[in-house]
């Protein structure tokens, strides 16, 4: 649910934390691109109905990329020879940011993503609480098991398929063509934690780059 701005900030926080002294401007470019990439499926949603949060938020997309990176850098070297020195960790960090920040933040908030699209067309939102309360004991609501007498399945936050679910975006607010003059909203931040994550991401990027450039 967070905006692309929050995805990028959290991706940069993860990237700076993973790369440490190797975090430089080139890594920033890779990570920012990796975090914007999944949200480009707002445009595929105009062509194939309701594929925002499905087409590029599918875990198959980074899975395929991982396969290509692995083949091009470890199995053979057709990709490695085309890259600058130090690009291999940057690419893997970008892929981590794609999964953790680009897809993860959407998957772990209310509207969810379609993680196995197009193999399995099902939106899933991993959301819930874990804690302890007197009288109730330990509780969690991420996975809900059905009552034995009913024949319902386990609930892990299934939201429905692209037939029934349309995740709105500024590019494609609703299924099908929009009336002229339809309100299109492009959010930046709309929750307190979006602000904190965005600030933490900026801080980590600034300090990380400063250190790397000072030691270079």
């Amino acid at each position: 649910m967070p905006s692309t701005v929050v995805h990028v900030a959290f991706g940069l926080l993860c990237g700076a934390a993973l790369l440490g002294v190797r975090f430089d401007r080139r890594a920033v470019v890779v990570i920012v691109a990796a975090c914007i990439l999944p949200d480009l499926d707002t445009f595929t949603s105009l062509v194939v109905a309701s594929t925002h949060r499905a087409m590029l938020h599918s875990l198959l997309a980074p899975g395929l990329l991982a396969l290509v990176f692995w083949h091009g850098t470890a199995r053979s070297d057709w990709l490695r020879v085309r890259l600058a020195p130090g690009d291999v960790p940057r690419l893997w960090t970008g892929l981590f940011a794609y999964v953790a920040a680009g897809i993860g933040l959407d998957m772990f908030t209310a509207l969810g993503v379609n993680p196995l699209y197009p193999l399995v067309d099902q939106f899933v939102a991993v959301d819930g609480r874990v804690g302890y309360e007197t009288g109730r004991g330990l509780f969690q609501s991420f996975v809900e098991f059905p009552e034995p007498e009913t024949c319902g399945g386990v609930n892990v936050g299934q939201r429905g398929s692209t037939e029934t679910v349309h995740v709105a975006s500024g590019v494609d607010p609703s299924r099908g063509a929009e009336e002229p003059g339809t309100e299109r909203i492009f959010p930046v931040v709309f929750r307190g934690w979006h602000v904190t994550l965005a600030l933490a991401g900026c801080l980590a990027t600034w300090l990380g780059l400063r250190d790397t450039e000072a030691s270079a």
């Binding site: 953790a100 933040l105 772990f108 908030t109 209310a110 609480r129 804690g131 309360e133 007197t134 991420f142």
Partner: peptide, 16 residues
């Protein structure tokens, strides 16, 4: 004043 409630994870994004 009687119940004690300690929450470890409040929402999906926190778990992430």
């Amino acid at each position: 004043g009687r119940t004690m409630r300690a929450v470890l994870v409040n929402a999906g994004w926190e778990l992430l």
